[in-house]
Design a protein around this nucleic acid. Structure first.
Length: 647
RNA sequence: GCCGGAGUAGCUCAGCUGGCAGAGCACCUGUCUUGUAAACAGGAGGUCACGGGUUCGAUCCCCGUCUCCGGCUCCA
């Protein structure tokens, strides 16, 4: 008579003896699975293989092939790393070491006077490999919290003590679990693989400072990043992918392709080069199409405005540390007391525009766009190529509407963003709904209503989103649109923010059908977010090789010899007349050389013009994608290139 | 801002223990007149990020500053 029966994923029952564990279940199914088993999953929750099973449970054996298995051994690897670090630097205080996207990390506080550098990573790695080779088992013990506290206090591990204290006060736990592998024991929820030997390949990647619990007022710990895989081959592939991603980094491609550059004279503020400025214009044209289609008007407001305005808007109180202030050396007598600031946002300017004339309810929703160049002082350490700069152009707009119109407007904005991103080839876009932050203005009830309005607009569209409590703008909640860069880092692009505060502060009103004055609601929205950031992401998304319609130079015309220059220029003239962006390579170089250079500059089409083509008036076309396409006329080529993003 | 790393020609990088600053590519000049990913020769190009210190002597060692890179925090 079996003591317990569990159910397998295919629905079949498995009978096991009394006190059977996950390992026993795996062994009962087959010896191969017993060897491959890492953990079990019961109702979506992972458990140790050594954990006892209960009668009637539905279980699944987790192996290297299971979803989430990499996280499991990466978590194992974090423990092994902590083991090695504590051995190499006795007295090191450990904190937390979770698996993350692509790897794992562990945060340490090294003993007084110890500072480690990249060179130490190799030593740690070697020590880790010894522990992995020794195939030490992970052993779990559950102990009462008092005992755990006493233990970690005795070991002078204050971070562990704090974690346990929080577990007691927040979750009311009475016992905690410890995991031991070799000489190292850690407070850990688990689960872990049976032993360290399951980590086939491990690599430490970098070193970084990280505040304890992400709080910049607290101790800075030393974080070590690494990754682990089930095979050396997987690790090698992973490292190759990272290399490839680095080659696609917009900070490398941008200057290389002549798109933009940065200079020490203005840290964090990009200089757009001729090719990049073409790109900027092309991107903007796509936004313009949306503005036309969705009945926006466009305005332009000053970059420098009186500090008084920023007091009125609340920016001075809530955003001052990010603002630049501008003072003239000399000033007129009657302006002596005036101070000015560079705009960090466009909204106050937009409100002044709204306020400059009377509005009827018939005018609403009033969709007022502005390509606004804003300046924001950002801390030096956060600057990141085009993705985080100190001056950028927003494809901004402010929609003034009635509360009843909010939902339709939010939906319209989301649709505009969808269409625009699809045009540029972005598919993996994540939405986030951010609610009231600590530093903010306005009544609670108003905030709640605004948050509810955004949530309901999202629900109407059946969109998935992540909730980010406390991450809203100081004047209202927002929906953000995120995409990732070449290295997998997520960046916010578009945004849609509700604002009941600004209309109040600027005393904005429209005249209703009832002849009375009413307060409009304001929606701040940016489709691409920042043109700079968007183009940075765009460069990485296309690895610098833009689709035909978006390439700054679409056709490189390559004369074979000097005598073909005239024919080449004539061909360029025809192409330009047909709307193609082209360039003649007039250098006295070989054709092979011109082709090579054109390929490296990622021009989609090359047109070779020699004796034959000079005669016919066309060009022999070589495309990067398809190689030699044979001879084509200027008209055919123009048709091919200018067919647009839908092609 | 904080932790760790880096800064040598336009770019990618050498430069030993402190002893006259180097290469390839790019650039300029000349020759070649080229047919689908690099013709040949010559030339020019440096405040070794910046400021200070140690030293007979500093690209090299020390201190400070700036910028960049990887993170943390923050954010479009």
């Amino acid at each position: 008579m079996p003591a317990l029966t569990v159910k397998l994923p295919d629905g079949s029952p498995l009978e096991l003896g009394d006190g059977a564990t996950g390992a026993d279940a795996a062994a009962a199914i087959g010896p191969g699975l017993a060897r491959a088993a890492l953990a079990i999953r019961v109702a979506g929750e992972e458990r140790d293989l050594a954990a006892p099973l209960t009668d009637g449970e539905e279980i699944e054996i987790v192996t290297a092939r299971s979803e989430g298995a990499l996280d499991l051994i990466r978590h194992d690897a974090a423990h092994v790393m902590a083991t090695a670090v504590c051995e190499l630097w006795p007295g090191t205080k450990v904190s937390i070491g979770p698996p993350i996207e692509g790897g794992f990390y562990y945060d340490f506080e090294f003993p007084e006077g110890v500072s480690i550098s990249d060179a130490d990573l190799e030593r740690i790695e070697e020590r880790m490999l010894e522990h992995i080779k020794a195939d030490e088992s992970f052993e779990r013990t559950d102990i009462p919290v008092d005992e755990a506290l006493e233990r970690f206090r005795g070991e002078d591990q204050p971070y562990k003590v704090e974690l346990i204290e929080d577990l007691i006060s927040n979750e009311g736990v009475e016992t905690v679990s410890l995991y031991r592998n070799g000489p190292f024991t850690d407070l850990c929820r688990g689960p872990h693989a049976p032993s360290t030997g399951r980590i086939e390949a491990v690599k430490l990647s970098s070193l970084a400072g990280a505040y304890w619990r992400g709080d910049e007022t607290r101790q800075m710990l030393t974080r070590i990043y690494g990754t682990a895989f089930f095979s050396k081959k997987d690790l090698k592939q992973h490292l190759e992918r990272i290399e490839l991603a680095k080659a696609n980094d917009h900070r490398r491609l941008g200057p290389e392709l002549g798109l933009f550059t940065f200079r020490d004279e203005s840290p964090g503020m990009p200089f757009w080069l001729p090719q990049g400025t073409v790109l900027l214009r092309l991107v903007r044209e796509k936004v313009d199409e949306q503005l036309r289609k969705r009945a926006y008007v466009e305005v332009k407001t000053p970059e420098v405005m009186d500090v008084d305005l920023w007091h009125r808007s609340g920016h001075y109180e809530n955003y001052r540390e990010n603002m630049y202030f501008a003072e003239p050396v000399e000033r007129d007598r009657d302006e002596e007391d005036r101070r000015f600031a560079l705009k960090p946002m466009n909204c106050p300017g937009a409100c002044l525009v709204f306020d400059s004339s009377r509005h009827s309810y018939r005018d609403l929703p009033l969709r007022m766009a502005e390509y606004g160049h804003v300046s924001r002082f950002e801390r030096a350490g956060v600057l990141h190529g085009l993705l985080r700069v100190r001056a950028f152009t927003q494809d901004d707009a402010h929609v003034y509407c009635t509360p009843e119109q909010i939902e339709a407007e939010v939906i319209d904005i989301c649709e505009a963003i969808d269409e625009l991103y699809a045009t540029f080839g972005f598919e993996d876009v994540k939405l986030e709904l951010s609610t009231r932050p600590e530093k903010s203005i306005g009544e609670d009830a108003v905030w709640e209503a605004a948050e509810a309005a955004l949530a309901s607009a999202l629900a109407k569209q059946d969109r998935e989103y992540q909730l980010n409590p406390g991450d809203g703008a100081f004047y209202g909640p927002k929906i953000d649109f995120h995409v990732t860069d070449a290295l997998g880092r997520s960046w916010q692009l578009g945004t849609c923010q509700l604002d009941f505060q600004m209309p109040e502060r600027f005393d904005l009103s429209y005249q209703g059908a009832d002849n009375a004055n009413h307060r409009p609601v304001m929606i701040h929205r940016a489709l691409l977010g920042s043109m700079e950031r968007f183009i940075g992401i765009l460069i990485e998304h296309h690895a610098g090789r833009f689709p035909d319609w978006l390439a700054p130079v679409q056709a490189a015309i390559l004369p074979v010899a000097d005598r073909h220059l005239d024919a080449a220029r004539k061909l360029l003239g025809q192409l330009e007349a047909a709307g193609v962006r082209g360039r003649v390579d007039e250098r006295a170089e070989s054709v092979g050389r011109k082709i090579r250079d054109a390929e490296l500059s990622k021009v989609p089409y090359m047109l070779i013009v020699g004796d034959r083509e000079a005669e016919s008036g066309g060009g022999s076309v070589r495309s990067h994608d398809a190689g030699d396409l044979g001879e084509m006329s200027a008209a055919d080529l123009a048709a091919r290139i200018t067919s647009g993003p839908e092609a």
